[in-house]
């Protein structure tokens, strides 16, 4: 049973990491969900895998199953659930506002203006600028 659980956690984490590294928001959401599943099973096994043991210490029983990881998993599930719901809504909002579902909003939306470099000057002005700089340089040369 240990091997099976370990494999399940491993496969889910691998798939989760792979999907999280994808460039579109929907695989990323799925990847995060898979990661959350993996961590939930992982937390559960941290109380050790036992079968047929009482949860609360019983004088007659030989051992007991750890009840705490289940409480932790429950909390983790609720939080992951809420976060995922938020992320999906945010991804939809990003899809609407950025015009595509790329995580970096790679392509510009129809009405988006790309960032302009501060030194972009029209060709006609540019010649003037070079002339003035030339003048200033020549002035400097004259000075000494």
């Amino acid at each position: 049973m240990e091997l099976l659980i370990a494999l399940v956690i491993g496969v889910m984490t691998t798939a989760g990491v792979y999907l999280t590294l994808r460039a579109r928001t929907f695989p990323v959401v799925l990847g995060l969900t898979l990661l959350a599943y993996a961590v939930n099973v992982f937390l559960f096994t941290m109380g050790r895998l036992t079968i047929g043991q009482p949860a609360v210490i019983d004088a007659a029983a030989a051992g007991y199953g750890d009840p705490l990881p289940q409480a932790l998993v429950l909390t983790a599930i609720v939080i992951a659930f809420g976060m995922t719901a938020f992320l999906i809504v945010l991804a939809l909002k990003a899809r609407g506002e950025l015009g595509n579902d790329h995580v970096d909003g790679l392509h510009l939306a129809p009405d988006e203006v790309p960032y302009e470099k501060p030194e972009q000057i029209k060709p006609s002005q540019q010649t003037q600028v070079t002339e003035t700089t030339m003048n200033s340089q020549s002035n400097q040369e004259v000075k000494p």
């Binding site: 999280t20 995060l32 976060m83 991804a91 995580v103």
Partner: peptide, 10 residues
């Protein structure tokens, strides 16, 4: 803001 927010959340 949405774009930066998406990265931050993920």
């Amino acid at each position: 803001r949405t774009k930066a927010g998406l990265h931050y959340v993920v």
